[in-house]
Design a protein around this nucleic acid. Structure first.
Lengths: 332, 332
DNA sequence: ATGAAAGCGCTAACAG
DNA sequence: CTGTTAGCGCTTTCAT
């Protein structure tokens, strides 16, 4: 592998000049630039990243923390982040924690030993105790979920408004008894969606009846959606519509309904959240809230870069969601 | 950030001794070890990776090439690779190409400029023209798919045998007219599954009738599965069972059947491949071939490490698949 | 506009 | 067993 010295020798200039050309920084005569370019091409030279990073004390690398990658929700967020970072010369490392604390710590070490300049976090409990400390030491942006109580940059949709909109839509279809399937997790999105749901109920003059609420496991799994749906639909006065805080849960509820001999949409309307790919793979196709996932990622990346390069931290950005009408909802 | 020199000063020894302690290599007196450890703890010292990598000329980093992460098939393969690499002190970078040549090239550059020591490739055409050259320069392992014609290490299941087994199972249920939904992609797995399917047919004394074959788009998408299913099921003499080379395709076929007023399993049995999560999320749950995904990843990683550390390249390893019987198949 | 040289933090060869 | 020292490849003063 050719080094900068080889290039300098080949071009008949000093290594300093070569460095100036590579980094397009500092005065160099057009003639030298030309010679250096020729030499670089001839030797097929590529700057050694370790030498550069050692010298510059920066990694030009950022981390993306994600709990798992099986969740199709993350894919285009990650693309949005990667594309945006790459444009600014940053590399990206996907840190898949699988909910495992020790893995998480291993990845955080990358920040401490300088292998990464900052991180985007895609999944965090609203009351997390550690993120505050981390954000004080490193540039951090939270995407989709965030920790309340600490002023750490975050970007997401307005979950409250989205849920409220769902209720408005459902009541406009004539539904008056509307159920809610949440999750016992600790995400701010779950909380906000429930608050928005309740607000929507109140605005429509409907009562907030605890018998209309059911909660799935923290993992949002399909199976726990079936359970929650079964629970809700087996109660005395059955809702005619159910809002679920995620598509997978909604799929579970539909299955539960089916198991109970109920038909969507004749007996029940169902609304999901996220608009993941398989929301359209089932029959009926799911009515759901779509989040601008690529933009969510892109915006997070932009905020992170700004933070890395100028140090400003904090504040929230909210992007537009969209209610997608499909086949799982109908007039009551 | 403390450097090795700070530690040496604090411990009252030379940097060489500190280095020996850190790397547990070379003779050091117990007393020195102790002193160094104390100093390291006191200063909260962490070796600078750039200095180390520059000096050692190695990255202890490997690449995983994956076309996308929305495909749930990849998640646990990736975990298998990451866990195994980490155990040997290697970091991992997930390179999501999204089928984009320029992205791919960006990632390959990481190999050329020394940011990574090798790569696991999760998706490659059987006739790829570039992988051979790459594998001559760097340690490479292909996982699940591989390029024929070049002797580059690979690990996968025996797709031929698996498909053949599916046919045996289907004929044992009394099916005599069995359809095949493939894809026009260029993966060795697709080819082998089709060959195995045809072999199974022959062994059962059934004819290989072109009217029983249909092909989905190269992207294996749900929609193209619907199309292929529709095509196949609309032909004159309809198959009573269909083997699909992927679960998503199988889901599409089931949907197509449903659209045509056919009922699985009364009118049609369907078998998939891969056993991805949502194979169980639909009704009926899918009968399918399960691949040992975590082990596939783990084995790939082990082969890659061996290759990095001792240079040996080539050869194939085949792991056991499993036929998972669920609800989408029945006696004819 | 250019070059000489110091030094980023670490490892390893060598001398003791 | 320990220390000294020469770089790994690069960037960046500081002279010129």
């Amino acid at each position: 592998m050719a080094t900068i010295e080889d290039v300098a020798r080949e071009a008949g200039v000093s290594v300093a000049t070569v460095s100036r050309v590579i980094n397009q920084k500092g005065p160099v005569s057009p003639k030298s630039v030309e010679k250096v370019h020729v030499a670089i091409a001839k030797l097929n030279y590529q700057p050694n990243v370790w030498g550069r990073r050692l010298r510059r004390q920066e990694s030009r690398m950022i981390l993306i923390f994600v709990p798992n990658i099986s969740n199709p929700f993350y894919a285009s967020i990650v693309s949005g982040i990667e594309d945006t970072m790459k444009k600014d010369g940053y590399g990206t490392m996907l840190c898949i924690t699988n909910g495992d604390k020790s893995r998480e710590e291993d990845f955080i070490k990358l920040l401490y030993d300088g292998q990464a300049d900052g991180a985007v976090i895609l999944c965090i409990d609203k009351n997390d105790r550690n993120i505050g400390k981390l954000a004080k030491e490193f540039p951090i942006v939270q995407c989709c979920e965030y920790c309340v109580g600490e002023d750490i940059s975050h970007v997401s949709v307005d979950n409250f408004a989205a849920a409220r909109q769902v209720v408005q839509y459902l009541t406009s279809l004539g539904h008056e008894r509307i159920g809610f399937v949440g999750s016992v997790n600790q995400f701010i999105s779950s909380e906000d969606r429930q608050k928005g749901f309740e607000q929507g109920l109140k605005e429509a003059g409907l009562s907030v009846d605890q018998a209309c609420f059911a909660y799935a496991d923290a993992d949002y799994s399909f199976n726990s959606g079936i359970l929650a749906g079964k629970e809700l639909l087996s109660r005395e006065e059955r809702p005619t519509a159910i809002f679920c805080i995620s598509d997978v849960l909604a799929l579970g509820v539909i299955r539960a309904a089916h198991n109970l001999g109920l038909e969507v949409t004749r007996d029940l309307s169902v609304v999901g959240f996220d608009d993941v790919e398989y929301a359209t793979m089932l029959s009926p196709m799911l009515t759901t809230i779509s989040q601008p996932r690529y933009s969510l990622g892109k915006t997070s990346a932009q905020m992170l870069i700004r933070q890395i390069e100028s140090g400003e931290q904090g504040g929230g950005v909210y992007l537009e969601h969209k209610l997608i009408l499909r086949e799982s909802t109908a007039r009551h």
